[in-house]
Design a binder for these strands. Structure first.
Lengths: 218, 218
DNA sequence: TATAAAAGAACGAACGATCGTTTAATAAAT
DNA sequence: ATTTATTAAACGATCGTTCGTTCTTTTATA
């Protein structure tokens, strides 16, 4: 799958005189990780300030304080960059959601932990959140075919729900459907929070944890 | 509110010699309603095919089979056009959602009707749906400040839920929060439907009607 | 250890294409 | 005869990307 030349930067193939091959890492000049980080950050900020259609490579470069052409050292093109940013952010979110989730824990408690994790993550990472919401609904996402890696990210969560179903505590429905009832209420309240319509406080969180549980419990 | 000069096209004010005023309609050449309709339709198609950032006025004009400059006869600019398209589509959706909803009907039945209406509307209007999903999360929407008219559109639905709360049938929480538990599961399944992951059939609909009701009932 | 050769990072400038919008002229309806 | 819809053409600006070059680091040679 990896058609990206950047992925192979550090690998060198060498054929010896006797025709044996050796593989080793090249000791080439390192790419500056701060650079790609700055590019990501600039992209996030601009997307949330002026939107998809007005965020250009030039503007990204200017805010990241690099040359436009430098971006193409790190990414094949604009789509590639946005796609990599998306998977990166989505992975951070999924890791945060399952943090502190234990297999032997009661499912009801686990789902509450997950929803609290999600709320904390969204409120603390406004840029991530708004970017995900924009990108999730763009045709570009479908075009990039990232479904496999997405499924992998959320496998722990699906497994956890699977156990709840096995125990007979949850309704016998698709895990992704049950997850829907826990995920979207949190994002909806986070959106209202950022729009200034009511704070997403502890009380609000408790309310929706109750509602979501009522929905998914057997 | 109406700062759009286009809204006043058919009205002419005239001051007579004795200072009296008369108001009459001008007999100007009619704007072709098919034109603005074609522009809307072309925009919807392109947005869902190539996304926000690649949908230009030229492409819209070409697909609508009009000149790019003709678009500016009907709309002030690109933002104005997108905003008008959004309110138009959103209004169609809200009208569809409350269709057949009667005040004297049991609330549980009413909410089921609403969710079925929503599913039917989304499945029959793929372009509308995908456009709404994209636009709802863009910074442009916030910039246009359409909240007032949106609130007005969904007032019947909020009132209906308000009655349910008054009867003690629904939980005593914000109507918009209760609505969230009915709205998002439908849109989530519609998305999966269009992605080819399982048909959004009658069985699936019955499932989420049950779950949503479990969530919002008192 | 000193130094030249090599390789890739980084950049400014420029590419053709296209952007959203305007203008000036024409076509069509009243 | 007006008036306005409609358009083709053109506006300056900016788009995503590439090119040729310069820096900077690493490798090879001495």
């Amino acid at each position: 799958m990896s058609q990206d030349p950047h992925d192979l930067d550090r690998v060198i193939l060498c054929r010896l005189d006797d025709n044996r091959m050796i593989v080793y890492y090249s000791l080439m000049r390192h790419k500056d990780e701060n650079k790609s980080e700055a590019i990501f950050q600039a992209t996030l900020e601009l997307l949330n300030e002026i939107g998809f259609s007005d965020t250009s490579m030039s503007k990204i470069a200017k805010r990241a304080q690099v040359s436009p052409s430098t971006i193409y050292v790190y990414f094949a093109n604009k789509e590639d960059m946005l796609g990599k940013l998306y998977t990166r952010v989505k992975e951070k979110m999924s890791l945060n959601m399952v943090h502190g989730l234990e297999a032997d824990q009661p499912v009801q408690q686990g789902m509450a932990v997950m929803m609290r994790n999600l709320r904390d993550f969204l409120l603390e990472n406004r840029d991530y959140f708004l970017f995900l919401e924009q990108f999730s609904n763009s045709p570009l996402l479908a075009k990039l075919c990232l479904d496999e890696s997405m499924a992998l990210m959320f496998k722990p969560l699906h497994d956890y729900i699977g156990r709840g179903k096995q125990q007979g505590v949850l309704k016998q429905l698709d895990a992704s459907l049950l997850l829907t009832y826990c995920y979207f209420p949190v994002t909806a309240l986070a959106k209202e929070h950022f729009k200034g319509n009511g704070e997403f406080n502890e009380d609000r969180l408790s309310e929706i944890i109750k509602l979501s549980w009522d929905a998914i419990k057997a």
